[in-house]
Structures are given as C-alpha cells and as structure tokens.
Nucleic acid binder design. Sequence first.
DNA 1: CGTGATGAGTTGAGCTCTCAATTACTTACC
DNA 2: GGTAAGTAATTGAGAGCTCAACTCATCACG
Lengths: 162, 162
Amino acid sequence: MTETRWLTADEQRAWRAYLEATILLFDALDRQLQHDSGLPHTYYEILVRLSEADGRAMRMSELADATRSSRSRLSHAVARLEERGWLERVDCETDKRGQVAVLTDKGFAALEAAAPGHVAAVRRHLIDQLSAEQIGQLEQIGTVVLKALESPECQAVRAADE
Amino acid sequence: MTETRWLTADEQRAWRAYLEATILLFDALDRQLQHDSGLPHTYYEILVRLSEADGRAMRMSELADATRSSRSRLSHAVARLEERGWLERVDCETDKRGQVAVLTDKGFAALEAAAPGHVAAVRRHLIDQLSAEQIGQLEQIGTVVLKALESPECQAVRAADE
DNA sequence: CGTGATGAGTTGAGCTCTCAATTACTTACC
DNA sequence: GGTAAGTAATTGAGAGCTCAACTCATCACG
C-alpha cells in the first residue's frame, strides 16, 4: 500500500458538492415517486426500461444491466411488481434457465401515470437549474465515470467479491 | 397541471449518464467501505463529520443536516454506532430535549483505518477520471443543485409531507 | 402563569437492499 | 457422452431506510 493521496481542497469541494446534491436529489425524487405513485425509483426504472424494449419484454439479466441493478435486487423487485400485476415473468424459449419479464397493460398505464410527475421533479430540481453548457458538461462527466466503472479491471474487482 | 415538458434528447442523455454513473459509483463506494471496514457510506459520513467538529461532538439535528440525513435515519444509525462503542450520546446542557453525539477514541481509530481505502476508491472511480476543468464544473453543478434543493420553497414541500 | 404550537429526538412496522447459498441449466473439453 | 466449470435466476436472513406516531421540552403570547 502506497502513501494515501488525500483529496486537494478543490477536489474536496467538488466531491462534497456532488455528493450532497446527489443525496438530496435522489431523496427528493424517491420521495416524490413514492408519494405520488407508490414506487421507489428503482422500480420506476424497471418499468421504463421494459416499456422501451421490443415487445415490452426483456431477459432478467439484460434488465438488471440496463437498470444498473444486481441480479438479486432485480429478482426481489420483479417479484413485488408481479404481485401488483404490473409485469409478468415467462420462461425463456431459447434458454431454459432464463426468464423474461413482460410489462402488462396495467403496468404500462401505471408508468404513464407516474411519468409526468417524475419528469417534472427531475426538471425542477436538476435540469432547469443548469445552463445548456452545464447539461453538456454533466453528460461528459457522467459518461467518463460510467466508462471507468464498466471497464474490465473494475468488473474484475466486483466479480472477485461475489 | 400544465402540459408535461418532457426532456429533450440532450437532457435525457445528461440525466441518464449522471444517473447511471452515480448509481454505479455509490454502489462501488458502499461495497468498498462495507467490505473493508464494515460500514455503510452513511455511517462513514457520520464519523467524518463528528471527527471534524469541535470536541468531536455535535447536536443530533446539526449532524443530521450536515450528513443530509433525516432525523430518523440518524437516530437509527447513531444507535448502531453506539452499540459498537464508536460514539456516545450525552444529554445536552442547554436544551433538555437535546442529545449530543460524541465520537469516541475507538470511533476515531475506526475512521482513521477506513479513510485511506475510501479516499482511494473516490479517486480511482471519480476524481482521477476527470480533468481539473471537469472537477471545477462538477463543483459548480453540485452547488447550484444543492442550493435549489435547500431553498425555502423546496423545504416547504418536504415539510408538508412530514 | 398556562395553554397551544413548535421543535428535538426516538421508536417500531414495513419495505428494500445486500450478501451468501442454492437450484437448474448450458457450455467446454477430453 | 459425461463431467467440470460457468451462467441464469431465485431465496432467506440480516441490515438500513422511510414513514407515521409518539414523548418530552421549549417557546409564544394572551
């Protein structure tokens, strides 16, 4: 282990501002969705991804990757959503181990009802606070960080823990 | 309710990149802290704030605000940390309703042990991925969003839910 | 004073998430 | 073609978080 490289003052400020803003933002979005639609944000994302997919259906692991969720988390979440009748699980044709999650009409309707309030909250708290330039910067930053976290060496560390 | 203003393509990309990067980043940091130090990130933040405070002590509500946590979450967390002997709760002198959380030497030692690994992870996944310019941009963006979420009208909405 | 409203903090129930173990199937390879 | 290794998905236990309800103390104001 080499000597710790602590954060500089600039880095500290950036990290703290990002961290605190994100905590408050995610809390606010979760609160809004839960209050108005009875969904946590992770469940909302599952519905969104399914609604955008061909036939409103996706394999479980594809859906887990798309929503940046663990397999386990997704399994639990899908089980809850199935109880509500918002989606169904059917066996996969080509792989007998596989399951396909399919959004029901009821689930699609629930998503349509939830979306406007959620988008409004994302706008109010985030998008409409930023200049067009800052929106571009945020995309760049997000993309770079995402790429690093998806890189092979990073995946290897995750896999080593499982 | 006025017509929904959906996100433009640019806004979508920025929001998604930020959202996904943040989910993966927070998961990675939580995983690292939990694995190496047996702490979730929220608990780590509590220790950090206490360690920086005068006398390593803070009022509960002050600490809740500083860590961007709800009162309830903090109460639960402090109870767990107290069980481990990492902090103590003592009655407040000036307000008999109040409690003061005090970091113990054992808690400080635990924080010192956890910090290097955590900072290294923040560097590896976030800071070292960005240019100096991007660090500045991230601070700006975070600050603007934070200010909006802390504004009176936003607090009013939160309070109305409680 | 004293009464009603506000504030500080806690608690318990219910829900989500993580981690580790498990089942069931598929692929690679000899 | 049979066995070992890898993959898909689920499960249950334990932990953290949210929400609403609650206690007890302080403040405002007549």
